[in-house]
């Protein structure tokens, strides 16, 4: 009986997830043309209740991606343009003395929103960065002894430019660990680029974007995703992968336990997007590069060989056998 209801529950939840994901992807796809994979990963991270780091050269649509997602959801959206003089309180909020009430009252910062778009996060000072990253992890802000919970859902999409290093404070690897996944936009295909020139000529398609879902729906979706079944075999596989990254000679720093947690959560969301109520190793493999690569520190040999950590993760996937069943 319980199994039955649970089965029906999960079926309706899967339908909901599929529905929301299709609408989101449709809306975002109108803005970000020819980047279905990126859009999909973005939605996956949103459903897995994680944060996204978008890393690429300027002008490929990083901010556009973040904004399109923000606009597609009927929720509060804040955009922070990180600059060297940005203060932590600009992010978290500040207590101001109210002359009329004769009390200090809290003015929430930019972080108090469902979707926070942090542009060029590496331009802010480490102090400001860490203020943001701490609230990302804890999903709350503490100011003057009072703790303020952030809204649900909460997703930070930070963009970062890896090329222009002058006057920037690159995120240290430990901080990157807070992001569930890192994606690169990559250049659009020539055809997509041609279309882009046509459609974006008159006015940005972002203007015409209307929300396709709301915050409450996304919250229920996130809740449904946590109910996706992850069998012992899959958990074993994730542990094997993470463990292997720690003993790999190609890496100076392996994946953290949090990396494993994030990978499992992302895999759950991926499985749900595929319409499955259980995780399979393919889900893990599909997301492993996005979830793991930005957290790992390459060894000097790897750097000298000009190999990226993404390649190292691909190697790890090839080397780690998929456990046939739970051991």
């Amino acid at each position: 009986m319980t199994t039955d209801t649970a089965g029906r529950d999960i079926d309706t939840a899967l339908e909901l997830i599929h529905d929301v994901a299709t609408r989101l992807a449709g809306a975002m796809g109108r803005v970000i043309e020819g980047k279905d994979e990126v859009v999909r990963t973005t939605i996956t991270v949103l459903f897995a209740s994680g944060h996204l780091l978008i890393e690429d050269v300027p002008g490929v649509g990083k901010t556009m991606l973040a904004k399109s997602l923000a606009r597609s959801i009927d929720a509060t959206v804040r955009r922070i343009q990180f600059t060297p003089d940005l203060l932590p309180s600009d992010v978290t909020g500040v207590s101001v003395f109210n002359q009329d009430a004769r009390t200090f009252e809290f003015r929430p910062g930019a972080i108090f929103a469902n979707v926070v778009v942090g542009d060029e996060i590496n331009r802010a000072s480490p102090k400001t960065q860490s203020a943001l990253l701490e609230s990302m992890e804890e999903r709350q802000v503490t100011a003057d002894g009072t703790t303020y919970r952030l809204q649900e859902p909460f997703i930070v999409m930070a963009t970062q430019n890896p090329i222009e290093m002058e006057g920037t404070y690159p995120l240290p690897e430990a901080q990157r660990d807070r992001f569930m996944a890192r994606i690169s936009m990559g250049y659009p295909s020539p055809r997509a680029e041609l279309e882009l020139l046509e459609t974006h000529g008159a006015r940005s398609p972002l203007e015409s974007l209307t929300p396709v879902t709301d915050a409450a729906t996304v919250v229920s979706v996130i809740e449904a995703v946590t109910r996706v079944h992850a069998s012992p075999a899959v958990r074993q596989y994730i542990v094997d992968l993470v463990d292997r990254s720690r003993s790999s000679t190609a890496l100076r720093l392996g994946a953290s336990p949090r990396a494993g947690l994030h990978l499992l959560r992302a895999s759950r969301a991926h499985a749900a997007l595929e319409g499955r109520d259980h995780v399979i190793p393919d889900d893990v493999q599909a997301l492993a590069v996005a979830v793991l690569a930005h957290r790992l520190m390459p060894s000097s040999e790897t750097q000298l060989a000009r190999r990226t950590t993404s390649e190292v993760v691909s190697d790890l996937l090839r080397q780690t056998p998929v456990p046939p069943a739970a051991r």
């Binding site: 199994t3 069998s231 075999a233 899959v234 259980h278 190793p281 069943a325």
Partner: peptide, 10 residues
């Protein structure tokens, strides 16, 4: 096989 390995046992 996927169902047997990765889905709920029942």
């Amino acid at each position: 096989l996927e169902r047997a390995r990765y889905d709920r046992p029942d």
